[in-house]
Simulated scan of single mutants.
Amino acid sequence: MSDNKLFLEELTYIVGNERSLNENVIGQIIGKYHKSRILITKVYQILNNNKSILPFIHDIEATIIDYIVREEMSYEKTYYGATLYVADLFETTPTYIKCKVNQSRKSLQKIN
């Protein structure tokens, strides 16, 4: 399982169990997954703001990546620029980000 997916699942667990994101928790996540404080806080806020739909999300990694790409595009970034930014946040390639966005959007089409 990828490091990003484990990181996202741990944050989902933290939000689902209504634990707060304090300095101790952030320090543990940084030590365990080597993610930036900015990414940890951003994902925690996204998950916390959408807590009620978490049980219905099948692929948390694809969903969160798609959400952040869409959010970045709302700041008048191009799709390419948004995928580069998110790839940098998650320390992965833009191609991986594009694949995850496509996965998320395909699963949304199945629902509709």
Rank of each mutant, 00 (worst) to 15 (best):
H34F: 05
T63I: 04
E71F: 02
Y80T: 11
K77L: 14
E71H: 03
K35T: 07
K100M: 15
I29L: 14
R37G: 02
I30T: 04
A87S: 12
K51D: 11
E61K: 07
L47P: 07
T41A: 13
Y85K: 14
E9A: 02
N102H: 09
R70T: 14
G16K: 11
E61D: 11
E61P: 09
K42S: 15
N102L: 12
Y13C: 09
S52F: 02
I30A: 02
T93D: 15
D59N: 12
D66H: 13
T78P: 11
N17F: 09
V86N: 06
Y33V: 11
L108H: 04
N112Q: 13
I64H: 04
L84D: 11
E61V: 04
P55G: 01
I38D: 15
L6N: 11
I111T: 12
D66T: 12
F7T: 05
S74L: 10
E71T: 10
Q45W: 06
F7S: 05
S52I: 07
L84W: 00
E10L: 07
L6T: 05
K110N: 11
H58W: 01
R19M: 01
Y96R: 09
I30Y: 01
K110A: 12
D3Q: 10
D59S: 03
R70E: 15
T92V: 15
D59E: 11
T63P: 03
S104H: 10
N4E: 11
V43P: 08
S20E: 05
K106L: 15
S2R: 00
G27E: 06
N112F: 13
S52H: 06
Y67T: 13
V101E: 13
I46G: 07
I30E: 12
T93W: 06
E72A: 14
P55R: 00
Y33M: 11
V25S: 00
N112G: 11
N48D: 13
